[in-house]
Nucleic acid binder design. Structure first.
Lengths: 143, 143
DNA sequence: CAAACAGGTCAGAGTGTCTGACCATCTCGT
DNA sequence: ACGAGATGGTCAGACACTCTGACCTGTTTG
């Protein structure tokens, strides 16, 4: 049973562990996100993003994106301002509270990566990251 | 931008690529599954499983499991028979058609793994799998 | 053998997603 | 310089998956 796991599952297990830790520790710090909200929130550019760009990047419809951005706005993570360059558009921007949640999640990721490195050793951790980065060339749909 | 991706994302990209390929090629071969259906279907034991066991393993409620098993049954991938050992229970079993879909998905996984190995080289592919297997010790919630 | 437990179903609600239709604004070719 | 088409966004309605709570039927156990 142990060794014949397919490589997809082998990748999924640590990915999922990372994700779970981030959501748990974020929630413990008072930052509640659903996975769907996070998927959109993650993609907001530093100086704000348009709804349609977020939709495209997240791979969901504009309508679903609007639904989720409404929630993020209600939760205080983002606000919306008119786009100065385009009268049709509004920019979704990360608020102060939003930035604090980003920082918190960055910290959790760093903590988990440190745990992994402690388990694997620095050398194999670096190898893992190099191999995955290489694999990205043929598996990353956004190049 | 390229190298500072966190390890979670780095794991997710190839995992997601694998998953997408499996669903696409399965669909092309006439086997349609939603991700939710697949999550339950995957966990059916060779000699059949109880609904409650599937629910526990998939981490969803019995009701949701029943909902998905109904669909799998309608699609012809599983059937249900009374459990000879427990009058309350029924066993969910994989049908002939279900087995064919399992075989098809196994083939897609093998194909994708071969592509990855061609890109990375056999040596690094093996390294990747070894490191991930090792990482499983601290990230696999089902031990 | 009664009480507690386990397997399963029914009913109702919430969330995230989609498609289709629509309006407002911008861009570009003539 | 203007009209056609593209783009940004919203509204309305539907569907898929999930949950909680209540319940029934059988099994196990003190």
């Amino acid at each position: 049973m142990p060794e014949d796991l397919n490589t997809g599952v082998l990748l999924y297990l640590p990915y999922r562990a990372m994700e779970t830790r981030v959501f748990e520790e974020l929630a413990a710090a008072g930052f509640d996100f659903t996975p769907s909200q996070a998927r959109v929130f993650q993609r907001i550019a530093p100086d704000g993003s348009r709804l349609s760009d977020l939709a495209r990047q997240a791979g969901i419809t504009k309508q679903s994106t609007a639904f989720l951005v409404d929630q993020l706005e209600r939760l205080g993570y983002v606000d919306r301002v008119p786009d100065p360059d385009d009268g049709r558009a509004r920019l979704v921007r990360i608020t102060e509270r939003g930035h604090r949640s980003v920082e918190a999640s960055r910290a959790v990721v760093a903590r988990v990566e440190a745990e992994w490195e402690a388990h694997l050793g620095a050398r194999r951790m670096a190898q893992l990251r190099r191999i995955l980065t290489d694999l990205r060339e043929i598996t990353d749909p956004w190049r």
